[in-house]
Amino acid sequence: MFEIQDPNSIQLNSEGQLKHFITTEGLSKALLTEIIETADSFADMSAQQVKKVPLLRGKTVVNLFFESSTRTLSTFELAAKRLSADVLNLNISTSSTSKGETLKDTLQTLEAMHSDMFVVRHSDSGAAHFIAEHVTPNVAVINAGDGRHAHPTQAMLDMLTIKRHKGDFSPLIVAIVGDILHSRVARSQIHALRTLGAAEIRVIAPTTLLPKNIEALGVKVFTNMQAGLKDADVVIMLRLQKERMQSALLPSESEFYKLFGLTNEKLQHAKPDAVVMHPGPINRGVEIESAVADGPKSLILDQVTNGIAVRMAVMSMSMSGQMTEKNLKSEAQ
């Protein structure tokens, strides 16, 4: 009776270009590769003396953060500034929503200020999708994390990091470890890795931290860390929130660390040239040993640097997708 909505219908324009960036799910390999390659070129530029390009000159980018964040917010801000945009940071969790204003009202208020792009972080899954559905035409929406659903720029910066260190995705075994249940990062990584053709994607966690039927997303499930790490090329650790102990998902931090914390000893099971990643902020001694986090296999700081480049890429691509759509519409009239 109803057609099932394609997740792409909201984020692509009629030419198949990105106009919002909501999720990595369903995006083509070509488009994901384009994001990685565009970001790669920006990453090289960031190392130079003059770090700015005029791609978003005259545009206003609003960072709309309903959940607190340090690194994501600051890398989005830097990315927008390097694209020459005007940037407004709004931390909504402490302002309007506590006054009872609905998300839609907040959005309309901000639209009245003639913004060109919203970068949205929200604790509800589907929030960025909701905003993209209700935003005025020609305004781009970038998902900076919605609930447990998606964190596509984090996933793409991880893809860029993997690409820069491993080159080709097709032979790779990638293991994602920890709180998969609550992780928007893991979901976005899984979709991206699958589309980019990684040989095997594994998730490693106790059953209490695994969402139902996660296998359906195309991953292999391991509840034993050593078995799951065997021959892995890339190990991605996820942050474990302290609240998980209170909600009876785990007995204690120490038991989790003993079984699933990444130590140099456990890392022996992975390939000798394996790399270690973490979306941050890290909990030393909870999900990762300091010696690993600061060790030679760790790419954690590279991820942050690549984050700026990836955010520049999706911001410029989405803005350009919006412009194309606007031009097509005015031609049609």
Binding site: G126, G147, H149, K212, A216, L217
Partner: peptide, 12 residues
């Protein structure tokens, strides 16, 4: 709580 829920990241 099933595959669609897992994909959408909603609480099941």
């Amino acid at each position: 709580d099933d595959t669609t829920c897992t994909r959408l990241g909603l609480a099941g």
